[in-house]
C-alpha cells in the first residue's frame, strides 16, 4: 500500500481507480480494460509531472520525509558489497541512529556512515527516527579516523531532522560530540563525499556532511534547523513550519545557488520513493564520479580542497 502525501491526492485517486479496474478484470476475464488503464496511466504521469515539477519547499520537506523514501539501509545493501557494520563509540554506547562500517563500493574499499531513521514503527523507535545522540557522532568520528588511518575514502549519507534534544544527550555533551565530529571531517587526508538523501537537519547533519563534495537528492532539504524548530525559534510557534520551510531557501536548487552543495542528483518522476532502484543507482553513479575526481590528489591537497571549499561559501558577493 503506497503512502500518499496530502498534495498527491489527484494521483492517489487515479491510482486507486487503476487498482479497482485491475481487480475487476481479474475477477471477470471477459472484461477488457486495457485501454482504460492505459489512458489512466497517462493521466497519472501527467498529474505527477504537474505536481513534481513545481513542488514548494514545504512539499519537498514532506517528500524528503516520505516513509517510502530510500534510507541508509537501501543504499548500503545495493551499493556496497561485503558490508561489515561497525559499532560503538568506545566510550559509552552504540547509537543506532548513525550506522557505519566498511565495505566495497564499485570495487573499492570504503568506509560508509550515515543516519538511519528506520522503516516501520519498531525500526523508527530502534533508530530514534535518525536523531543521533553524542555516542552516534562519536562513533562517526571514530570510523572517520579509522578510514584516515587506513587511507580509505568516506561516504556519508545524511538523513536526519537534527541531533536528538534530550537530557541524556546533553549530559553526555551533545554539542561537543557534534563539534568534534565536524572537526574530524575537516582533518581527513582521505576524500569524503556526503549525500543528503532525505533531511539534512542542522548541526546533526553538518557533523558528518563537512565533506570534499556534498551531493543532494533533488527533493531533499538541507536546513539550519528543521522547519518546525526554525518556526519555533522565529515565531515561538512550531505549527508555522510551512512558513519557515517556504522562507528559508532549503531546496537543492537554492543550495546549489549558494554554493553549499556541489551537485544535485535528479529524482525519478514522483520522487525517490517511486523508484528506489533508479535513485540508488543514480546516487551510486554520482558518488563514484565524485570519488574518482580525488584519485590523483595527495592527502594535504584533499584537506586543503575541503577547507577552501567551505571557506568560500557565502563570500562570493
Amino acid at each position: 500500500m503506497r503512502t500518499y502525501l496530502d498534495f498527491e491526492r489527484p494521483v492517489a485517486e487515479l491510482e486507486s481507480k487503476v487498482a479497482d479496474l485491475r481487480d475487476l478484470s481479474r475477477h471477470d476475464a471477459s472484461f477488457s480494460i486495457c485501454d482504460e488503464i492505459k489512458c489512466l496511466e497517462v493521466k497519472i504521469e501527467h498529474a505527477l509531472k504537474e505536481l513534481y515539477s513545481k513542488l514548494t519547499p514545504w512539499q519537498k520537506t514532506q517528500v524528503s520525509r516520505h516513509p517510502g523514501r530510500p534510507r541508509f539501509t537501501h543504499y548500503v545493501s545495493c551499493l556496497v558489497d561485503n558490508f561489515i557494520p561497525l559499532c560503538g563509540d568506545r566510550r559509552f554506547s552504540d547509537d543506532a541512529a548513525i550506522q557505519g562500517g566498511v565495505g566495497c563500493f564499485r570495487g573499492r574499499p570504503v568506509f560508509i556512515i550515515g543516519h538511519e531513521r528506520g522503516g516501520d514503527t519498531d525500526g523508527r523507535l530502534k533508530h530514534n527516527f535518525g536523531m543521533a545522540k553524542p555516542e552516534g557522532y562519536r562513533k562517526a568520528a571514530r570510523l572517520m579516523s579509522l578510514s584516515d588511518q587506513f587511507d580509505l575514502p568516506v561516504l556519508s549519507l545524511i538523513d536526519t531532522a537534527g541531533a536528538y534534544p534530550g537530557v541524556g544527550a546533553e549530559e553526555r555533551g551533545q554539542s561537543e560530540a557534534i563539534a568534534r565530529s565536524t572537526e574530524t571531517c575537516l582533518s581527513l587526508g582521505v576524500p569524503n563525499i556526503a549525500v543528503i538523501i532525505g533531511q539534512g537537519g542542522s548541526g546533526g547533519a553538518v557533523a558528518i556532511a563537512t565533506a570534499n563534495k556534498v551531493l543532494m537528492l533533488e527533493h531533499s532539504i538541507y536546513t539550519v534547523a528543521s522547519p518546525e524548530a526554525s518556526a519555533s525559534i522565529l515565531w515561538h510557534d512550531s505549527a508555522r513550519a510551512m512558513d519557515a520551510a517556504n522562507q528559508m531557501k532549503i531546496t537543492s536548487a537554492d543550495l546549489l545557488h549558494f554554493g553549499v552543495i556541489d551537485a544535485v542528483i535528479p529524482e525519478p518522476m514522483g520522487g525517490a520513493h517511486r523508484d528506489v532502484d533508479a535513485i540508488v543507482k543514480a546516487t551510486g553513479d554520482s558518488l563514484f564520479e565524485a570519488l574518482c575526481s580525488f584519485d590523483d590528489m595527495k592527502r594535504d591537497e584533499i584537506r586543503i580542497h575541503r577547507q577552501e571549499k567551505f571557506m568560500k561559501i557565502g563570500t562570493d558577493f
Binding site: T182, C185, T210, V224, V260, G314
Partner: peptide, 8 residues
Amino acid sequence: ILALMQMP
C-alpha cells in the same frame, strides 16, 4: 543554511 555553514 549560510548561518549553519559558519559551524564548519
